[in-house]
């Protein structure tokens, strides 16, 4: 996983950072560059679709894409994302123009409480971008770092395979 654990003790002079978020240029005046990306996305940009799970990089709920690669937004400092392109669940697709995986999640009704869902959708989208036809085992392996407490795993597997358009679950 990119980034390093945030160290809450440090204080730095405010810095102006430039990031691309969901295709738009954003700048952030951040007093503490060690602040994990998720607090900026949720607090400043009000992109609340990214969910904080464990805050330890163990559950995958906060996964976003940075330059197309899945990253844990609770672990990567805002400063480490400067100059890069961040995609959150809000930027992946919309009801009018859904990402195929979002459409597949809805078709398979692949969520219960939905806390882990955005992170799984982002991870699954990254998987499909690098492998358009993953098998069931590849999907399981790609998602193994994502925890779901409600037990929606089966539906999620089916959704990713449905979006891949091939293999039956």
């Amino acid at each position: 996983m990119p980034g390093k654990p945030a160290s809450p003790g440090k204080t730095k002079a405010p810095a102006l950072l430039f990031l691309t978020v969901n295709g738009a240029e954003r700048n952030a005046a951040i007093a503490d560059g060690d602040m994990p990306l998720i607090y900026w996305l949720r607090g400043e940009l009000e992109l609340t679709g990214t969910h904080l799970g464990c805050g330890k990089g163990e559950c995958g709920a906060c996964t976003v894409l940075i330059d197309g690669q899945p990253a844990r937004a609770c672990q990567i400092p805002v400063a480490a994302a400067a100059g890069r392109s961040v995609t959150t669940i809000e930027g992946l697709g919309t009801p009018l123009a859904p990402h195929p995986l979002q459409a597949a999640f809805i078709a398979e009704q692949a969520a219960q409480c939905g806390w882990c869902t955005p992170g799984m959708v982002m991870e699954g989208a990254a998987l499909l971008a690098r492998d358009a036809q993953p098998g069931r085992d590849e999907v399981k392996a790609a998602l193994d770092g994502h925890l779901c407490r409600c037990g929606s795993h089966h539906r999620v597997l089916r959704a990713v395979l449905r979006a891949a358009g091939g293999a039956k679950p």
Partner: peptide, 21 residues
């Protein structure tokens, strides 16, 4: 029948208590 809250959960627009401001 499909659950009415599923689309918002999948698009990241569902409102959780965590999102109240």
């Amino acid at each position: 029948l499909p659950r009415p809250d599923l689309p918002a959960k999948v698009y990241g627009s569902h409102t959780y208590v965590h999102d109240v401001k």
